[in-house]
Computed example of a mutant assay.
Amino acid sequence: MGYEEIGGTLGVVQHQELPPAVALEERAAPRFTLLIRTAKLVCGRAEYLCVIRDVSAEGISVRLFHPLPPVEQLPADIDSRFVLEMQTGDRHPVRSIWEKPGEAGFQFLTPVDVEQMIRRSSRFPKRELRFAAELPVKLAISGAKYHAVLHNISQQGAMIETGEHLKIAQTMWIESRTMPDIEAKVRWRQGERYGLIFDTTFRIGDLAEIVHALQKRTSGPAHS
Rank of each mutant, 00 (worst) to 15 (best):
R217G: 06
V83E: 11
G163N: 02
E128T: 06
E26D: 06
T178D: 08
L41C: 00
R189A: 13
R193V: 09
R193E: 15
E72I: 05
H92A: 02
S80F: 03
V62K: 10
E85F: 13
E17P: 12
R123S: 05
G220Q: 05
P180S: 08
Q215S: 07
V149Y: 12
T9R: 15
P125T: 11
E72R: 09
S121N: 08
P93D: 03
R120Y: 15
A39C: 00
T178L: 13
G2Y: 04
V42L: 07
A140Y: 13
E103W: 08
R203K: 14
I118E: 02
I204F: 04
P111S: 13
A104Q: 01
P125Q: 06
H212P: 09
V112D: 08
E115W: 01
A184G: 02
I141L: 08
A29D: 00
T38L: 14
G102V: 10
L10H: 12
V94M: 01
R45Y: 13
M86R: 12
T162Y: 01
R91T: 07
T9E: 15
F82Y: 01
P69R: 07
F32M: 01
S56L: 02
V112T: 02
I168F: 10
A57F: 15
I78A: 01
P19E: 03
G89I: 04
I160M: 06
S80A: 04
R91A: 08
F198L: 02
Y146H: 10
L166R: 03
S142H: 10
I60W: 07
K100Y: 13
R217T: 03
V51R: 12
R217W: 05
R120A: 13
P101T: 04
M172K: 01
H66A: 15
F82V: 05
A184S: 00
L41W: 04
H165L: 13
F32S: 05
E26N: 01
P30W: 01
P70E: 02
P70H: 09
S176L: 04
G143R: 00
L207A: 13
R37D: 03
Y48I: 07
L84I: 05
E175C: 14
L129N: 07
A213Q: 01
V114Q: 11
F106A: 02
E25C: 05
K185Y: 04
A29W: 02
G205M: 14
H212I: 05
D199F: 11
V62C: 00
H165G: 14
E209T: 09
D206T: 00
V51H: 09
